[in-house]
Structures are given as structure tokens and as C-alpha cells.
């Protein structure tokens, strides 16, 4: 399972597909101070990305894949900065 939820932290591992979007959304609805760890993430579906963007989690650990990190982190952290 690419999306691993451990208490208040969700770990993205490998390629995370569109099917996980609702689970992720539910997670953010449930957890007060959610943390997101993208370190092991090799790719994520746009639907997940926008759930992340909308949820504005307190902390996001960037993916170790530099291309992916470069593509999504400015967007995700930019959203965080808006708060």
C-alpha cells in the first residue's frame, strides 16, 4: 500500500495512485496536526497533490526524488506560506 498512515503522519511510498485520494482526504479530516512524509514517494497522482494542497499540512517532508521535489515542493510550500 503506497499510502501508509501512522497516527498523525501519512507516508507516501512508491507510486501513489488516484484511488488513494479519498483515503488521504479522510486522513486530513481526521487528524488535527497532520504530517506528510513524501521521502519515499516516487510519483503521486494529481488528485493526491491537490488534496495535499487543499489540506495545507503543517509539515511536509519533501520527496527524495529531486525532479519530483522540484516540481511539487514550491507549490506545496507556497500554499503553506499563504497561511
Amino acid at each position: 500500500m503506497p499510502l501508509r498512515i501512522a497516527r498523525t503522519t501519512v507516508h507516501f511510498e512508491g507510486h501513489c495512485s488516484v484511488e488513494e485520494a479519498l483515503d488521504l482526504q479522510a486522513f486530513f479530516g481526521r487528524v488535527k496536526v497532520p504530517k506528510v512524509v513524501l521521502t519515499q514517494c516516487a510519483g503521486l497522482h494529481t488528485a493526491l497533490l491537490q488534496v495535499l494542497a487543499a489540506a495545507r499540512p503543517a509539515s511536509i517532508a519533501p520527496p527524495s526524488d529531486p525532479t519530483l521535489a522540484q516540481a511539487i515542493m514550491p507549490f506545496l510550500s507556497g500554499i503553506g506560506a499563504d497561511r
Binding site: 485520494a21 497533490l49 488534496v51 494542497a53 487543499a54 495545507r56 519530483l68 516540481a71 507549490f75
Partner: peptide, 29 residues
């Protein structure tokens, strides 16, 4: 996202929301 990442030689790659985000619970993912 995957499609956009396929663009070769990208010098800049930015993502933005079309409409402002509402509460996450109301989002249609």
C-alpha cells in the same frame, strides 16, 4: 501532473490552483 512532467527541457515548472482551496473536507479530489 505526470503529463506535465513529461515536457522536456522544462526550465520552470509551477503549479497553481485554479480556484482557491476551500476546507479540505469539501474538496472533491
Amino acid at each position: 501532473l505526470q503529463a506535465a512532467l513529461q515536457v522536456p527541457e522544462a526550465m520552470a515548472f509551477t503549479i497553481e490552483a485554479v480556484a482557491p482551496w476551500g476546507p479540505v473536507a469539501d474538496l472533491d479530489p
